[in-house]
Design a protein around this nucleic acid. Structure first.
Lengths: 159, 159
DNA sequence: TATTGTTATACTCTATAACTATA
DNA sequence: TATAGTTATAGAGTATAACAATA
């Protein structure tokens, strides 16, 4: 009456490790009082200063109203600013403030620590092999580099 | 004024691919009218028939009331049944019905297709290497085999 | 009339706490 | 009194739709 279970394959391990990596990253950036979604937004604006909110929402894979709420939170903390477009006054061009740039430097440190911790089981050679294989899988699956749609804002840490 | 971004490392790729794998799995089991959480529950009860709801909730990493709702949904579709414990009448021992067992056979097929699809970029050797590396990372990170806490029920497919 | 951004609203998922029945 | 299960309630996060300003 029992159907044999397949051993945990690559897809299952990816889902399991991905959830774990995302949760741990969330804990780490929570120490900076940021959510993963906020760091993704800041990161995107850092690489593309002047981005408007509509394009931001599209790139982040969230709805327009979600983008507004995210930007509101970051602007109220002076990490981000909206600048009215001079040509088209409907547009809000987004830019990091100096404080926002400093925050991203901290996020960068946290992300590198996180990466080292997640691959602590591997030596340098193995780590390179893993990254190379993951990149090929990500490419073949059509995933864009840099931003990942699919995760919505993870649960905020209770403190 | 710009801080250089690190290239996407292993942790980021794991999170990105994990979210993707989970989303695609969700689409596939939605075709069977199941959610990922439901398949996880059925799978657990299949491997440990007679499990009670409290232990189920603990193993699944969800609250007791969430377990009740999940079991309710599966019981109303005759995939699962509650049996009052003869020794302790507070306990509800969970068992798959025949229909539940058949459903899990379908889930197994879907999961194997999903696994093949997710690793379509790799040949057999590379797939084995990837799985071996992921297993070592998962072990070192303290992740239990079989069930992954961290994902809650993914969004139900609109139909 | 179309588009950017905003606000209002509803829905889903989850967690917490109160309740029952058994022990 | 303690525990398994249930129900009720509230919170967070997200999406949809209505709205305002600008084009």
């Amino acid at each position: 009456m029992t159907v044999p279970l397949p051993p945990a394959g690559a897809a299952f391990l990816l889902a399991q490790l991905g959830a774990h990596a995302a949760a741990r990253y969330g804990e780490r950036v929570a120490a900076l009082d940021l959510t993963p979604a906020q760091t993704g937004l800041l990161r995107l604006v850092m690489t593309e200063p002047g981005l408007n909110q509509r394009d931001l929402a599209t790139r982040l894979g969230v709805g327009a109203s979600t983008a507004v709420a995210l930007v509101d939170g970051l602007e109220s903390r002076d990490l981000l600013e909206r600048r009215r477009g001079p040509h088209d006054r409907r547009l809000h061009a987004l830019h990091l403030t100096d404080a926002g740039t400093r925050a991203m430097a901290e996020v960068r440190t946290v992300a590198m620590d996180h990466d080292a911790d997640m691959t602590a089981a591997l030596d340098d050679d193995e780590r390179r092999t893993l990254v190379a294989l993951l990149r090929r899988v990500a490419d073949q699956q059509g995933l864009p580099p840099g931003v990942h749609p699919g995760y919505r804002a993870l649960r905020r840490q209770a403190r």
